[in-house]
Amino acid sequence: MSTKSDLKSEQDEGKRDFLIVSTYALAGVGAAAFVWPLIDQMNPAADTLALASTEIDLSSLEEGQAITVKWRGKPVFVRHRTADEIKQAQEVSLEGMRDPQTDSERVTKEKYIVLVGVCTHLGCVPLGQKSGDVKGQYGGWFCPCHGSHYDHSGRIRKGPAPTNLEVPSYKFLSDTVIKIG
């Protein structure tokens, strides 16, 4: 008759066996692979992704005007800048800026500045889109929450915001149609 102890010792020998270890390992791999679909289902679905890019027709946007469009649940600012505003944005010295960037780094066509309208400080939406809005000391945008001032290129010039307003990825499909995202 066998006893418990020698059963156990045989079992321990068996545990070290390559076949048995690889069987359990493979079962583990299978279980891990099954977890992926369960995680991935929380990523944006195909219908959400289909709305992840927006096309905007700018042909009716007059010089000096701005529009706000919703993109991925956030406001996107598009402003048709005047020659004067472009000149100011290009000629200002980068010295002393918190997040130095030339204007040409931030626009594709200098007429249009496209920005994600979310203050880089704590996520408020800055003022400056409507003609009557406070635009701040530098004439661009002004965040009312904690007083960040942005210039005509959306660069942070004064106030607590750490970086310039984000430029979303976009491209011109034609002279006046842009696709954001």
Binding site: G14, I20, T23
Partner: peptide, 9 residues
């Protein structure tokens, strides 16, 4: 694999 592992055990 698990069949042979079972046989072995």
């Amino acid at each position: 694999l698990s069949y042979f592992a079972m046989r072995q055990i």
